[in-house]
Design a protein around this nucleic acid. Structure first.
Lengths: 80, 80, 80, 80
DNA sequence: GCGCATTGATGGCTGC
DNA sequence: GCAGCCATCAATGCGC
């Protein structure tokens, strides 16, 4: 099999990935911008992150996590 | 900080972020697909990852290596 | 001033730091081990981490964070 | 998972971790002190950090750079 | 006080 | 199928 053809194929794969990674990087930048905006409007970015992550999980999952946490907190004598 | 929360404004911010994160997630999927393809074509995904990561940082690397000697010199008080 | 003496001084500083960083790294390993143990005993490492971080903050701080989170959740219509 | 929590056992794990984290925190403080000292002696902390980080990774770096050509070769199906 | 850089935590992938 | 490894992502701390 022709060696140089394989080389081009590999190169092509790599360049596709690199293009996609640049896109991804751009979107990440956009997200960062929104967080900046929202911070400028007086919201707490860290808390907003939490909200988003909670919305991402299904409700039961979240409840259960909370329950285990409370269990542990009680076990070590922390008032939740 | 102004603690009042304008429900609509916050919601709007959050939804913008969620949309962007979905985009990002889609791009990530696309990347994964390319890795699958390339694996199907007989390339080793792990190796390709390495190649890509080296291509990403290579340009700066050598400069930095060169710079370290200068740094040492400066550090001992010799303004190069 | 003698250049080589300065060199030794810098070297000495650097080596002290490197020793300390190794210590730090060892302690980190120890911590990881405890998490492994505790996982083996049936506890959820992730939740234990949360417990530890809560204990680290003073109680009021934690309450307040929760309060803001609830506020945001309500604002976007999530049932906490 | 066995959901029963043996209060004392969990507490013991947590306290071990907390002790270790305090150690770690102390070592970090020591490191900061050395940087202060060294700054007092006229060295630039930022530069020293850089030197240390390069010393940490340097040994592997060149090998890796060397290896990449081999990786490319393997990737196109030439078993070197 | 903000942005950046490093470090630590989480989730996904690979090998056993 | 699970444990270890790696890559990504969030969070804390440092420097400007």
């Amino acid at each position: 099999m022709d060696e140089s053809v394989q080389s081009n194929q590999l190169k092509s794969f790599i360049e596709r990935i690199e293009r996609l990674e640049e896109e991804k990087s751009n979107v990440s930048s956009d997200i960062k911008e929104v967080y900046s905006e929202l911070k400028g409007a007086g919201y707490d970015p860290k808390t907003v992150r939490k909200v988003i992550s909670i919305r991402k999980k299904d409700p039961n999952e979240h409840k259960e996590e909370e329950a285990i946490l409370d269990l542990y907190l009680q076990a070590v004598g922390e008032t939740a």
